[in-house]
Design a protein around this nucleic acid. Structure first.
Lengths: 355, 355
DNA sequence: CGTATTTTTGTGCACGTACACGAGAATTGG
DNA sequence: CCAATTCTCGTGTACGTGCACAAAAATACG
C-alpha cells in the first residue's frame, strides 16, 4: 500500500510552502496564478487525500448546523430521521458542531415560511432540509446559495436548487411495489382502493402522487385488470378519517386491498378493527410505532420503508464532508433502498443500522 | 453542549500526570494501586471519551488485520461482504491497516484447516472470520483468545467463542419469511419444494438447517396445510444440479413453489428455463449477480438478503474500535435486517449503503 | 546504611492539518 | 521614483493523544 501523500509533500514538489497549498486546497484566495498552477498540476498527478483525523483535530471553529424538517412526532417518520441525524452527530462528536432544529408543520405553509425565515437568519454554516413545500424551499435555497451556505435534502428532491446532496427514494418504484404487494395479498379479481392525503396546499403530496402513478403503472404494465377506487384521508383529524374509512368500506364491500400512500395505514387499520369478518389487506408506508404495532398484530400486511435513519445519517455526513473539505460533492441524488417489512422480518429492523 | 473532558483534565483532577492516566486507560500496567484508584474514581464521574481523531493521529503502529472467509467468487455472497470490508478500510484509510485475506473452500474442511493454520501463525493484531466449520473455528478462536487477539464473526454465530462482535441474521426468521413468500406467490393448495445443499461435511449447512426449520415453523403456525417436498442440490457441479432439478420436477408436477435455501436459486431457475408452461415461483437467498439477473427477468420471484456489505463493514468497524480503545465491546450479537428483494425494488439495492 | 534493581511517574515529541501573523513582493498613486 | 497599499507567501503554533525515555520513588540485597 503506497504511503499517503501529505500537504508537505505537495508543497515540496510544487516548490511552494505548506500555507500556499493549504490556501489552494481550501480555496481561500490570495494565491498567485503561477503558484496555483504549479500546485494544481502536482495535485493532479498525486491524488492527495485529506487526512480526516488531523483535519478534524486542527479545526478550531465549531460549526453551526441548522436542521429544518416537519415536526417530529415521537415514533413517526421525521423522528426516525432525527435518530439518524443524532447518530451521525454522535459519530462526529469530536468535531464541535452546534446543532439547531427548526421544525414546521408540514400541513401549514405559513409555519413553513416562518421556519425558513428563521433558518435564513440563523447564520448557519450548513443546513439540512426536510422539504415539503417546493416553492418555499426554492426561496430558502436561493438565499443559502447566495450566502454560500451548503445544504442537503432529506426525503424529497426539489428541482432548481443546488444541494450538496439529496437523500430520497424512488417514489414511483414505491408505488409499483405497493401495487405488486396488494396484487399478492388479495385474491384475484378483488377490488382495490387507494387512500391518500387530502391535500391542504401541501406539495409534499408530490411524493404521494408519484406513488399513485407508480401503482397504476404496475397494474397497467402487468395487464391485471383490477378495479381501483380512490379516496382521501384527512391528515389532521384521525376520528374524521376513521369515519371516512368505514363509510367508504360500507359503500365498497368488494374492496379487499387498500394502499395507504402515506404513513397513516394504522388509522385505516384501527378503523376496520371493529368490522366483522375483516379480510382486508392493508399496505402502507413508513415503519412508525403505530404501523409497527399493526404489522405485528397482522392488521397491516406490509409496510414500505425508505430507511429514514439512513437518510438523516448520510445527509449529516455529506454536510460535514463538505464543511471539512469544501466542494467534495455537488447535487448528488442518492436513492435509498426501499424495504418491504412484514411480520416475519420486522423484528430485525429495530436495531438502527445507519451505515 | 458540555465541553469534552480531556486526558489532561482527568490527570489534573486525579493529581497525577497524563502518562499515568494513559497507562490506565490502555491498561498497560506499571501503575500503583493508589494512582489507579484515584484515576478510576475521577473517570467514573466524568465520562471521558477518547477523541477518535487524535487517537488515530498519534497512533504510530500500523495494524495487521487478517480476514478469513470462504472464497469470494465475483458477484457472490462473500464478494459482497468483501466490498463492505473494503469500504470500511477506506473509511479508515488514515489509520495504517495492513490487511491480509486468507480464503478457504467452504466445502472442503481441509482447506479450512490449512487456512486457519495460516491465520493462527500470522501474528495478526485482529482477525475477522467468516465461519462455516464450527469445530475448526472453535480451535482457531481458542488460539486467538490465548494470544489476546480480538476477532469478529461474519454471517454465522459460533458458540463457545469470545468474539468482539458477531454480525449475522436470524436464520429462523429467514426461513419463516421464505415460507410466507411462497405462500403468497403460489396458488392455494399448490405443492412446495425445498432445495438445500447436499452437505459435504459442511457445517454451514447450519444456516440452511435453521432456515428449513423456520420455514416449516411458518407453515405449522399458520396451519396452512401444504405438501412440502425436499430435495438436495449439488453445490459443486451446476450441470448435475440442473439435471437433478429437472428430474425432480418431472416427478413432482404439482410443485408450484420452490424454496432454495442457499444462493443457488439461479441454478434452479436456469434449469427450469427450458421447461414449457413454467408457472413455478422460486424464492432464494442472497443478491448475487446471477440471482439479480433472474429477479429482473422474472424467473425468480424474490430473494432474501442479509446485507452482506453491511456485515463486513460493521465487523471491520467493531474491530478497529477495539484496537483503538481496548475492550469497548465484547461478544455483542448484531442481527442484521433481512431484506426482501423483488423486481420492483431491486434497482435501489445496487448502490452500496454500508452504514 | 549504601548501592543495585525494579517499579512508578512525569515530560517531551510526533502525528498532519488549520489558521494567524508577519515578512516580503508586487502594485498603485502621486 | 518613492511611499503607501495590496497581494502573496512562509513559518510557527495549537489541537489531544500515544508512546518513548528519563527521572524519581520504592524496594531489594549485601
Amino acid at each position: 500500500m503506497a504511503k499517503q501523500v501529505k500537504i508537505k509533500d505537495i508543497a515540496e514538489k510544487a516548490g511552494v510552502s505548506r500555507g500556499t497549498v493549504d490556501r489552494i486546497l481550501h480555496n481561500r484566495g490570495n494565491v498567485s496564478e503561477s503558484s496555483r498552477k504549479a500546485v494544481e498540476s502536482v495535485l493532479a498527478e498525486n491524488n492527495y487525500r485529506f487526512n480526516i483525523h488531523t483535519s478534524a483535530v486542527s479545526l478550531k471553529k465549531g460549526f453551526r448546523l441548522v436542521i429544518s424538517t416537519p415536526e417530529a412526532a415521537p415514533g413517526e417518520y421525521w423522528d426516525t430521521v432525527g435518530k439518524g441525524i443524532s447518530h451521525a452527530l454522535d459519530e462526529y462528536s469530536d468535531i464541535s458542531i452546534e446543532c439547531t432544529y427548526v421544525y414546521y408543520n408540514q400541513f401549514d405553509i405559513f409555519s413553513c415560511r416562518k421556519a425558513f425565515d428563521t433558518v435564513a437568519d440563523s447564520h448557519a454554516d450548513a443546513v439540512i432540509i426536510g422539504a415539503t413545500f417546493a416553492s418555499e424551499t426554492k426561496i430558502l435555497c436561493g438565499l443559502l446559495d447566495k450566502a454560500g451556505i451548503p445544504y442537503a435534502f432529506i426525503d424529497s428532491v426539489i428541482e432548481k436548487t443546488n444541494p450538496v446532496a439529496t437523500y430520497s427514494s424512488d417514489q414511483n418504484a414505491c408505488g409499483r411495489m405497493i401495487g405488486r404487494l396488494l396484487d399478492l395479498f388479495t385474491p384475484e379479481g378483488a377490488e382495490l382502493a387507494i387512500f391518500s392525503s387530502r391535500r391542504i396546499g401541501n406539495e409534499r403530496a408530490n411524493n404521494s402522487m408519484r406513488r399513485m402513478a407508480g401503482m397504476k403503472e404496475y397494474f397497467r404494465d402487468t395487464g391485471s385488470c383490477r378495479t381501483i377506487k380512490e379516496s382521501k384521508l384527512s391528515v389532521l383529524d384521525p376520528e374524521e378519517s376513521k369515519r371516512d374509512v368505514i363509510e367508504f368500506m360500507e359503500k365498497n364491500p368488494k374492496v379487499k386491498g387498500i394502499a395507504v400512500l402515506n404513513s397513516r395505514g394504522y388509522i385505516v387499520s384501527d378503523a376496520l378493527a371493529g368490522v366483522s369478518g375483516n379480510d382486508i389487506s392493508i399496505v402502507s408506508f413508513d415503519l412508525t410505532v403505530n404501523n409497527s404495532r399493526c404489522i405485528k398484530n397482522g392488521t397491516i400486511s406490509a409496510v414500505i420503508c425508505q430507511r429514514p435513519e439512513m437518510q438523516g445519517f448520510h445527509a449529516v455526513k455529506a454536510i460535514i464532508r463538505t464543511l471539512l473539505y469544501n466542494p467534495v460533492e455537488k447535487n448528488i441524488r442518492h436513492l435509498m433502498p426501499v424495504d418491504i417489512i412484514i411480520r416475519e422480518n420486522i423484528d430485525d429492523y429495530k436495531e438502527i443500522f445507519t451505515e
